[in-house]
Write a protein that binds this DNA or RNA. Structure first.
Length: 508
DNA sequence: CGGGTTTGACCAGCGC
DNA sequence: GCGCTGGTCAAACCCG
């Protein structure tokens, strides 16, 4: 990754905002960091090193700067030594990060290609070799420390996720227990519910089974507790559970403006049917995943009757096979949403999600408990939503131009709009006349808040939407003829039969 | 010729 | 029980 060109661009201190630099390895981030610091007076732990070794036009200046470099390093020998001694246990600190800048530069230096090396060899000396070797050693050690720090941070994040998961699980069990307490004092009801939840939201035993079936090599065998999360993203536990218990399948519906007939979600689909659904002249197409034999994931694609520029894609089930990154985004979204939805709607009564509690008009996600499938709808068509979607004909724009912002944007937005400010219960949601079947508002809030605050869900949602936007906008192979979707219904007499209109609704 | 699409037929769930 | 509706099947068809 460290190429001479990058070293040149850096040392020249004229780095443009070349897109490559944003995707360089970690030391490129360090170089940017250092460059920013070098524009001002260097911080105490920063070794300012504005050298252009590789610029033959400034050979004189180069040598001077080389001397300055070693002079500077001699000013900080103890720092490097201390750093080496502590690198095994310490967590990365900002000061240490600044040290990485030094290493980055050295790494660039030692990583020269032959052409670059020829420039440096002209002035090479035994002492220079030794010093270079020393600094290379420091570079490697710094990298090791950085990796250790990264590992430490990942472990902390992992522990936090585990903690949140356990807390959510316990809280859900408590909610179920409280709900069932009046009906069944001995608690058998709540126990059953927890067991049912385990079917929909995988238990460890089932997760282990899924892990054995999975071919993904990214499983972290050291972190047993993370399995439910990992599993929930990539396996077909929901479908499996549906075979074992009469649990309604959760669905995730995505509403997005798209001229294409389908959204590009990274998966391979085969159309197996088309139907005119009641109340919508646009035909509904049925697809199933063909990326693996036996994958039970299906999706339905249909134009919105009110606004035919809106494409409604409804996913059901989880994939039972590894997915490409592009498909993983959507799969994670649907799986996370479905899993959370099922977790929140597990009680057998239909009114668990309660009545329409909030009159907010800004809808980003809609939860519907209407039979037969609980559905969460992710509405990406709202221009007034917190994300301020902008739309040019046929595609979304600015908020998604930088995919790296998506997790933060969505996570923050969803979190800020938790407590239902961004979630609105579907108006077609069934309300229960039995008070005992209503979820207490606090519990309901917890359920949806957990959904919106779930970093796994929000991140996956962000990635999925990014995938949708990129795929939808770039899906040149999709049929962009909207009229093909707006099918004519030659036999649409309002009394539905099995006749499917001979529409031009083309699949992919 | 293989894979995907189309489309009429079939089935199951639900309400009346 | 019957009709309506959603969902699926599978043979015919299309296409590269």
């Amino acid at each position: 990754m460290s190429t001479p060109s990058t070293g040149i661009s850096f040392d020249s201190d004229r780095i443009t905002s070349d897109h490559r630099h944003h995707h360089q390895s970690e030391f490129m981030d360090s170089t940017r960091h250092n460059r920013s610091s070098s524009s001002h007076s260097p911080p105490p732990n920063t070794i300012h090193f504005p050298v252009n070794y590789l610029n033959p036009d400034k050979s004189d200046h180069k040598r001077i700067n080389e001397v300055d470099f070693f002079k500077d390093t001699k000013h900080y020998p103890s720092k490097s030594i201390n750093y080496d001694l502590n690198c095994k246990e310490e967590i990365t600190t900002p000061a240490i990060d600044l040290d990485f800048n030094v290493n980055t530069r050295l790494n660039l230096l030692t990583g020269n290609t032959s052409s670059d090396q020829s420039v440096i060899d002209d002035c090479i000396s035994p002492s220079y070799e030794n010093k270079r070797a020393n600094h290379e050693l420091v570079s490697v050690q710094a990298k090791l420390k950085r990796m250790n720090g990264e590992n430490q941070r990942l472990r902390e994040a992992l522990n936090q996720v585990i903690h949140n998961y356990n807390a959510l699980e316990n809280h859900l069990a408590m909610m179920i227990h409280q709900k069932q307490g009046g009906e069944n004092p001995n608690g058998e009801g709540s126990r059953k519910q927890v067991m049912d939840l385990g079917l929909a939201h995988p238990s460890k035993a089932e997760t282990d089974k899924n892990l054995q079936l999975s071919t993904s090599e990214e499983r972290n065998h050291d972190e047993q507790s993370t399995r439910p999360i990992l599993n929930n993203q990539n396996t077909g536990n929901i479908d499996q559970s549906s075979d074992e218990a009469p649990i309604r399948k959760a669905r995730v519906s995505v509403r997005a403006r798209s001229e294409a007939s389908v959204i590009a979600d990274g998966c391979q689909w085969r159309k197996y049917g088309q139907k005119i659904a009641k109340g919508n002249p646009c035909p509904r197409a049925y697809y199933r995943c063909t990326m693996a034999v036996g994958c039970l994931v299906r999706k339905q694609v249909q134009r919105c009757a009110q606004d035919r520029s809106i494409l409604i894609t409804t996913y059901e089930g989880n994939h039972n096979h590894p997915l490409p990154p592009a498909a993983m985004a959507m799969a994670s979204t649907t799986s996370s949403a479905a899993g959370m939805l099922l977790s929140g709607s597990m009680p057998s009564s239909d009114g668990y999600l309660g009545r329409n509690l909030l009159p907010f008009s800004s809808t980003m996600a809609t939860i519907s408990a209407s039979a037969p499938h609980p559905t969460i709808t992710l509405d990406l068509t709202q221009s007034q939503n917190p994300l301020q979607f902008q739309r040019s004909p046929g595609q979304f724009q600015e908020p998604f131009s930088n995919p790296t912002h998506l997790p933060h944007i969505f996570g923050q937005s969803l979190y800020n709009h938790s407590k239902f400010s961004g979630l609105q219960m579907s108006e077609n949601m069934e309300t229960s006349s039995q008070p005992g079947q209503l979820l207490p508002p606090a519990a309901l809030t917890d359920t949806v808040t957990a959904l919106t605050a779930d970093p796994n869900f929000t991140a996956a949602l962000a990635a999925a939407i990014s995938s949708i936007i990129g795929g939808g906008a770039g899906g040149s192979r999709e049929n962009n003829n909207d009229e093909n979707v707006n099918a004519t219904t030659s036999n649409n007499n309002g009394h539905g039969n099995d006749k499917v209109s001979n529409s031009g609704f083309q699949g992919n």
